[in-house]
Computed example of a mutant assay.
Amino acid sequence: MIMSSSSRHVVLILAGVLLPLCALSAAPPRLLGLEDMSCTAWKATKGDPERREPYLQWVRGFLSGHNYASQSRQVGEVSAAAVALYVDRYCAEHAAATVATAAMRMSDEYSGRNAPITR
């Protein structure tokens, strides 16, 4: 079977999104993010919208990826302000965590699943 270029891209994107989701219980996912995704780095951006913006965009992109991979459990439209409030609260409660972990928990909560993805 010959695949068109666009079909190959869709397959690669799906593999890149779905394979990490399938392996969540086996090993932590490898996420592409900012150089420092720690809650400490996030907190250091408070009051500096220019430095905070990449984190906000990353989380919104992560939530979009969740929606792509889990179309039956969609995260609704969330504003940058909602993301900032969620990550602020999560990082305040889990100082050693990362922005990526906050994004994962946000996708759990906002999709109605209310639990981490498991196999």
Rank of each mutant, 00 (worst) to 15 (best):
A26D: 10
D108G: 04
A84D: 05
A80Q: 10
P28I: 10
R8D: 09
Y55D: 02
G65C: 05
S72Q: 13
G33P: 05
M104H: 03
G76S: 14
A69H: 08
I13R: 07
R119C: 10
S25R: 00
D108H: 06
A100N: 06
C91G: 04
V78F: 10
V78L: 15
V59M: 01
A84H: 07
G16T: 13
S79H: 14
A41D: 00
L85N: 06
L12N: 07
A44Q: 11
S4F: 08
M3C: 08
S79M: 10
L85Y: 02
R51N: 06
S72F: 14
H94Y: 12
E35L: 12
D88F: 10
M3P: 02
A96W: 13
T45V: 15
M37I: 08
I117M: 09
E35R: 03
R113T: 10
T45C: 15
S6F: 13
R51D: 06
R105S: 02
S72A: 15
Y55H: 07
A100R: 01
V87H: 07
Q57I: 10
R52W: 13
E93R: 04
A81E: 12
S107W: 09
E109N: 10
G61W: 12
T118N: 00
C22M: 14
N114E: 09
L21S: 02
G76R: 14
G47R: 06
S111N: 09
A82W: 05
N114G: 08
R105P: 00
D108Q: 04
L31G: 05
E93T: 09
I2W: 07
L85M: 05
K43F: 15
E93D: 09
R113Y: 12
I13T: 14
S64P: 00
R52K: 15
T118R: 04
G76Y: 13
R51C: 03
M104P: 00
G76V: 13
M106H: 01
L63M: 13
A103K: 05
R30M: 13
D36T: 07
T101I: 14
R60P: 12
L56S: 04
F62C: 07
A80S: 04
M104E: 03
T101C: 05
V78K: 09
I2L: 14
R113A: 10
S4H: 06
G16D: 01
S38I: 15
Y55I: 13
L24F: 06
R52I: 05
A84N: 01
E109W: 11
A81M: 00
E93L: 10
L31A: 13
L12Q: 02
E50N: 12
A41P: 00
A103Y: 08
R51F: 03
V83P: 05
L18Q: 07
M1S: 07
A115T: 11
Y55R: 01
T101R: 11
G33S: 02
G61S: 11
P54I: 08
E109G: 04
G65H: 00
I117P: 02
S70D: 04
E35D: 09
D88P: 00
T45G: 13
S38F: 12
E50M: 14
F62L: 11
A41W: 02
R89W: 14
M106L: 15
E93H: 00
E35M: 06
P28D: 04
A26T: 06
V83N: 05
D36Q: 06
S25M: 11
E50K: 14
M104D: 02
M3N: 12
M37P: 03
A80D: 09
T45S: 11
D88Q: 01
M106R: 01
A115I: 10
L21A: 15
P116K: 15
Y86V: 13
L21P: 01
